[in-house]
């Protein structure tokens, strides 16, 4: 009788770590590009003088935060394909991840900007500062401090969220776990390892955020 199930071995651990690298790469790409989108959205959403822009920003955030990320990736790859728009796999997974990041981080940026009180804005205006100067010297220092904890909170969520890229065929950490589980049936062992590796990626991020938060508080 042939060997039905593969025995769990060190090779599987290596396979998981390989998957973890894909997770990290994908996450770094999505977060850095998403941040640019987020700044734009944060500014659009706080632009008092342009209501139309504000509504577009609102709609964008609602759609990307109100639907499952899995569906966003699914639609970008398969849905657009049905409409005749073929995107390469890498692009099809990048766009939704970036826009998803942009929506969540955009809200965090907005909250940061709005935390700067009216008085501070007006003080800046009356000193004759331009919009750019205001943003740079008055808003940014306060906003960044407020933004750090939720940003890292989201980053940690994004690390886990990239697992949904499996739907277009990427073998990252979670998918690697399923693959091993399905050929070894060692489900609990495999997913304990998967959880531990995610923790290994995320915990340093959480720790760094706490340190940074304390440091900035001291400077304030």
């Amino acid at each position: 009788m042939p060997e039905l199930l593969v025995a769990f071995s060190y090779k599987d651990v290596l396979f998981l770590l390989q998957g973890a690298l894909v997770t990290i790469a994908m996450c770094a790409m999505a977060f850095s590009c998403g941040l640019v989108v987020a700044l734009l959205i944060g500014l659009i959403r706080t632009a008092r003088r342009f209501p139309a822009l504000r509504w577009i920003g609102w709609g964008y955030v609602e759609i990307f935060r109100g639907t499952p990320l899995l569906m966003q990736i699914f639609i970008a790859y398969f849905g657009l394909s049905i409409l005749g728009l073929e995107l390469p796999r890498f692009v099809a997974v990048s766009i939704p991840l970036i826009l998803y990041t942009g929506a969540y981080m955009g809200e965090i940026v907005r909250a940061g900007v709005e935390a700067v009180s009216r008085g501070q804005w007006e003080a800046g205006w009356s000193l004759g500062m331009s919009y750019r100067q205001l943003m740079r010297y008055v808003v940014a220092p306060v906003a960044v401090r407020i933004m750090i904890p939720p940003s890292v909170g989201f980053l940690v969520q994004l690390v886990k969220g990239t697992s949904l890229a499996y739907v277009v065929g990427y073998v990252e950490l979670t998918r690697a776990g399923y693959i091993i589980s399905q050929s070894t049936y060692a489900t609990m062992l495999v997913f304990t390892l998967v959880g531990a590796i995610y923790f290994g990626i995320n915990y340093p991020l959480s720790l760094a955020s706490q340190r940074l938060e304390i440091r900035l508080k001291r400077h304030a």
């Binding site: 042939p2 199930l5 593969v6 025995a7 399905q182 050929s183």
Partner: peptide
């Protein structure tokens, strides 16, 4: 479909 041994699965070398 590679989630159903012995019909389709990943071997030890993936």
């Amino acid at each position: 479909g590679l989630g159903a041994p012995p019909f389709g699965f990943y071997d030890a070398d993936k």
